[in-house]
Simulated assay, not measured.
Amino acid sequence: MQKNRTRHNQHISSPFETAGISCSICQSNNTASITTSMTYAMRSDGLLLNEPLAKVHCFNCGVLLGRNNQPEQAYLRSSGNSEFDLKRHQAVANGIANLLETSSNQSILSTLCKSDARVLEIGGANFATALALKKLKPHLQITSIEPSPEQVPETNDIDIIIDTFSTKHFKHKFDIIFSNNVIEHIADTRAFLKQCREMIEPSGCLIVCCPAHTPASNELLFSDHLYHFTPQSLALCCQAVGLELVAQQVAGWDTLTQVYLLRPTTGGQYQLEEPKPTQLFQVRRRLLAEWSKQDTLLKSQLDASRPLLLFGAGEFSQLIRTYLPKTYAKVSAITVDSVLGARQFDKPIIEFGQLRVTNQQILIGLNPSVRPAVEQKLSAAGFNQSQIIVPTV
């Protein structure tokens, strides 16, 4: 991981109408709302909110703030044990292990090699990442905490705690703390980082993985992503609680995830690239505008005389249901390779192997990175190009 060499410019003026909202990270009033024409918003588990998506961009530190009301309903989780889910957890574990092994910081390498090194995962989901990391590094003493687990495995390999991190009292500190896709959901970032700082040994480190600020991605569409951090905005939070940014990189398991390596403050200085918040605002606004237009664009490709299938029963298909309601209304059924791990929908779900290809059209409801492979799969199954519909978002 390479350190950047340019200092952070403290204030950049906005050419856009201000939102009248103070940034909760840097306290700047130089903010602007990013509005959409969408009727609903969606939580990351697929829960619909009866209000438009609301985001506010800060032109000083570049953070994007989520402004939707947060429902109290418990998260609707899948089992988390589909082949895709398990591969993802393994990839995260591989990435965490590789990050620690290749760190340029000698104290972090020494910590990893300790025979009794203690590791805490915050937000264990189904604990598959912690279990995979234990197999990679058997000497680590791993604890994983999760308030609402997808499932709880029977294992003695790791310590499992079903509780909330903010209220849990731990008996000892940890050498390594890591979280993946947690911090963006937490309302009080500084309080979370402060508690992490208090739980880290002086020579330890904190690994925070969260949606990358660039390129702008569909992660912006989740109402419960309260923050889309830039390195500058996260560094400000760290400085306030006695942490410092050591390094950052794009995650090896997901190009849309940024990995930040933090440690207790030692007086070192990690210099950041000068932010470009105006450019970032334009990119974010453009992505949301493209989603607003997508329903109309897809309508021109759909044949009303043909049944419409939706391929995929995961996160992206739920985004289609929420933000492309006219297109989703035409869907007669959803098809997937396996119903294991499918999210909740109000349409019948059919395993692809049981599907008989006739004159249907099929809309690919998966992230852009996997669409080419799915197109090939559909073509091999007998769908022609006029039947395959690919979103442009």
Rank of each mutant, 00 (worst) to 15 (best):
K3N: 12
N4C: 07
N9W: 12
H11V: 14
T18K: 15
T18S: 12
T18P: 02
C23T: 09
C26Q: 15
C26P: 06
S28C: 08
S37R: 05
G46F: 01
L47A: 11
L49R: 08
L49K: 02
N50W: 03
E51R: 02
A54I: 09
G66N: 04
R67F: 05
N68A: 01
N69T: 14
Q73C: 01
A74T: 03
R77P: 00
S79A: 13
G80N: 06
H89V: 05
A91S: 15
V92H: 03
A93Y: 09
A93S: 12
G95H: 13
N98K: 15
S107W: 03
L109E: 13
L112S: 01
L112T: 03
C113L: 11
S115P: 06
S115G: 11
A117D: 07
L120A: 06
N126Y: 06
F127I: 02
A132Y: 11
K134F: 07
K134Q: 07
L136Q: 15
K137H: 13
H139V: 06
E146L: 12
P149N: 08
Q151D: 14
I158C: 10
I162W: 14
I162N: 09
F170P: 10
K171S: 14
S179T: 12
E184F: 08
E184I: 08
A187D: 14
K194P: 01
Q195T: 11
P202V: 07
P202Q: 06
G204Y: 03
G204W: 02
G204N: 04
C205E: 04
C210A: 10
C210P: 04
F222R: 03
L226F: 09
Y227A: 04
L234H: 06
A240Q: 15
E244I: 04
V246Q: 14
Q249L: 15
T255W: 05
L256R: 00
L261G: 08
L262D: 12
P264V: 07
G267S: 02
G268A: 03
Y270E: 10
Q282M: 15
Q282F: 03
V283G: 00
L288Q: 07
L288D: 10
W291V: 02
S305N: 13
P307Q: 00
P307Y: 03
L310V: 05
A313R: 12
A313F: 05
F316P: 07
Q318C: 04
Q318L: 13
I320V: 14
K326M: 07
A329G: 06
V331C: 05
I334Q: 08
V339L: 06
A342H: 04
F345H: 00
N359W: 00
N359F: 01
Q376S: 13
G382F: 13
S386W: 01
I389L: 12
V390K: 00
T392F: 05
T392Q: 14
